[in-house]
Simulated scan of single mutants.
Amino acid sequence: MSVPETVREIRLARRPQGRPVAADLAVVETPAPKPAAGQVLLRNRWFLLFAGLATLLGETPPGTPFPPIEPGDTLFGPAVGEVVDAPAGSGLRPGDLVVHFRGWREYAVADPAELTPLVEELADPAAHLAPGSVGYGVLTRIAPVRPGDTVLVTGAAGGVGTLAGQTARLLGAGTVIGTTGSPAKAERLRELGYDAVLVDERTGDGPGRAERFARQLAEAAPDGIDLLIDNVGGHQAEAALAAARPGARAALVGVLSGQLGDTPAAHPPLRLDAFQLIIKGVRLVGCGNAGQAEAEAAWRPRFGEWLREGRIAFPHVRVSGLERAPRAFQEMTEGRHFGTVLVELPAE
């Protein structure tokens, strides 16, 4: 396979002023990367757009597990790449497909240890980028779901949420409730098996919006909730924790209310009634990267089995062409897509 002299990649053109827009990113032509001794040359086929990237484009808070992206830097993220050239002894051959973390570019180089070969259980290579291991890790390891549990998934229409709700049901949840900002998305979530969907439209912040959401939650779960998978934070997380039953578990996964809000913030405040959490024995866990590799390894074969049996769906959008990625990223931050958002690059 011949490699062109110049290839394209997407870089940060300027720091976003508020929510990221397409003009903050630039498609740049650059010399093709050349692998150093022992490295693998890859041609990307698909890469994932994920909301957490918005945090890295702005003022990155301390402790973030990824380096900040400065203007002029190439963006990165999960990708499926095809091996173009590999060193002897690496166990890789040209044509092999692998998962890695150098998306947002046509070609990449990486050390063999940074690459994960695709598993046979997933027939669609792009399905390896489904972020279902996040919810699966919560439901099986971090805050295991129990038979009959009432589970609330905030941000249910995103890549994590569309899979987490289905997974909760498959693992024994009794009632699964989701949240979204769109009535149209709410209908699609019901089609995925959510028992109830709370619509939290962006009609202004403040106590009125929070009170409306809390009332919806009380109607959907009058006896409270047993397990929270929170992708949003803010008033949704506050209402959910206030509705927690004794012995409930809460996994804090994301802060979409800050990352994708009208005035983005990487760390929006979360007000808690510590006394109620204590007397109810509510377990509150932050979900970082620890144990994620193990959760991913356990999730992929299970996901493949459920897909083959028709027990789970993989809601996703495929955007064709690197040049369309900046606009697709803006659309994702604006809430225009449902499920996982992938960029697909041509096979040849």
Rank of each mutant, 00 (worst) to 15 (best):
G178D: 06
T180F: 00
T180M: 00
A184G: 03
K185N: 11
A186P: 04
E187K: 11
E187A: 15
L189M: 02
R190G: 11
R190N: 01
R190C: 02
E191Q: 15
L192A: 09
L192I: 12
G193W: 08
G193C: 02
Y194Q: 05
D195F: 02
A196G: 06
A196Q: 12
D200F: 10
G204P: 13
D205M: 08
G208V: 14
G208P: 01
R209H: 15
A210C: 04
F213R: 03
A214R: 15
A214S: 13
R215M: 04
R215D: 14
Q216A: 09
L217K: 03
E219W: 00
A220E: 05
A221W: 03
A221S: 08
P222H: 11
D223K: 10
G224A: 07
I225D: 06
L227R: 06
L228Y: 06
D230N: 07
D230V: 07
D230R: 11
D230A: 07
N231W: 13
H235D: 12
A239P: 12
A240K: 11
L241M: 13
A242W: 05
A244Q: 03
G247W: 04
A248S: 14
A248V: 10
R249A: 15
A250W: 09
A251R: 08
S257M: 01
G258A: 00
L260N: 07
G261L: 07
D262G: 13
D262M: 05
D262F: 02
T263V: 14
A265E: 11
A265I: 12
A265F: 00
A266W: 13
H267W: 01
H267C: 02
P268G: 03
P269V: 01
P269R: 06
L270W: 05
D273I: 05
D273N: 15
L277K: 06
I279C: 05
I279T: 14
I279W: 14
K280A: 13
K280T: 13
G281D: 01
G281T: 02
G286L: 09
G286K: 09
C287P: 00
G288D: 09
G288F: 10
G288E: 11
G291R: 08
A293W: 08
E294A: 15
E294W: 05
A295Y: 06
E296Y: 14
W299R: 07
